[in-house]
Design a protein around this nucleic acid. Sequence first.
RNA 1: GGCGGAGUAGCCAAGUGGUAAGGCAAUGGUUUGCAAAACCGUCAUUCGAGGGUUCGAUUCCCUCCUCCGCCUCCA
Length: 465
Amino acid sequence: MRLFDTLSRTERNLSPIDGTTFRFYCCGPTVYGPAHIGNFRTFVLQDVLRRTLETGGTRTLHVRNITDVDDKTIRDSQSAGQSLTAFTAGWTEKFHADCEKLGLLPPHIEPSAVEHIPQQIAMIQTLVNKGNAYSSDDGSVYFKISSFPNYGRLSHLDERELDLGKTQNARSSSDDYEKDSLSDFVLWKARRPEDGENFWPSPWGNGRPGWHLECSAMIKEYLGDSFDLHSGGVDLVFPHHENEIAQSECACGGRFAAHWFHITHLLVDGGKMSKSVGNLYTLADLAEKGFSPMEVRYVLIGAHYRKPLNFTLDSLTAAREALSKLARNAHQLAAKIEPGTVLTTADFGPFRPAWESLSQDLNTPGALGGIFTGLREATRLTGGEAAAALAGLNRILRALGLTLPEIPNTASIIIPDSIKALAEARWAARLAKNWAESDTLRAKLLEQGWLMKDGKEDYKLSPAL
RNA sequence: GGCGGAGUAGCCAAGUGGUAAGGCAAUGGUUUGCAAAACCGUCAUUCGAGGGUUCGAUUCCCUCCUCCGCCUCCA
């Protein structure tokens, strides 16, 4: 498949460096609170990338970390009166539960930052030894940006107005930073009183790792010096990923990620999502409003990953209708196929264009459009062609990670006796052509949450949503 | 100020140097006692504005307008 690469700014083919397995790393969540749908846009798109590669026959190795030591986890664990470990474990568990609901494939490896402190210290030591990092009087260690000429390539920093080691005398003007240059970033933070018991011994004294370094160390541990793809939200391009490149290429000597995949931020009601505006939604918030995780997933893949996606409650309603239409059509297609038919086709049939869209820079909205178009074609097919079409549909749905809602099976719905009695009364009134009575009873049923639909020979009851 | 992205029907949203996918909503029809559901059909001479290049531009170039994101630890 082809995918846009942030570093080269071109679309490139994705194929494993080692010829067998596509190895990629995604910056995972900082576990200090519930993940919101903005976070999940990124994780869902990464999931679709993986599924698309796998559907195309490429084996993957997916690593996504848990950031469980940083300013926020430490701060919030303390105000919660919990140990850092207990605090982050709780949020990690919630994150996993949400991921499962959204149909995200679990990463093959999910390293946590606190469990890799030795690897991080080792990498810092290497950087210090090579002259790319220096320690300050207080026991912190900083990366020396001027020692890495390529700094800024990912985010086009060289064209920006940041000082790249040009303000060597800035030290005196900044009380907060014991840095040579304002733009040097921290690799190891010396212990501060507000860190409480959250510190680790190091050659530079007690302290804790800097955020940027955590990812670099875990990547080296599980993917080595060079790997296929690195991914995250756009906000991570600078400084996080820029810093990772600097650290890792200096420490490891090689080329870091071969490809950079960044997902654009989600907007809510046309603006930035934030707690203060009250438009920061979690899966739980949306569940309370009656929306399913799959409906959320549908909305999240409803726009191209490099374009802003405007999330609204209306879009969730639209997603619900679209999913239910998909389910009906898929059901009709399946009904045309003889039971027991084994679906083994390797092609996509009428869903070929949908697959092409997905393979072309992960065009998920294009693929969704292709599915509906393909479905219209598929309904005209019969026999083996219909079976092949169904197999193709299942493949493309699996690549998108969509699970279709069940077609309501009216036979399995449990109807309370009181409702049943009302329905019988209405049916009798209707047969007697007593329309007034019939309509009154139907309204009464609706009031109690039941929808009565008249058929030729009988009626159907279903819960009204 | 710097860097980057976006403006396509009521809403969401693809796409292409050759005349605009798809979904939601709306609307007409079939069906129904009336509904609901379902099914069939309709729904952008036009792609923020103005220039330019071209046989031809929504797609390339220029200018302008509007919106959004990032600019040191937010996916």
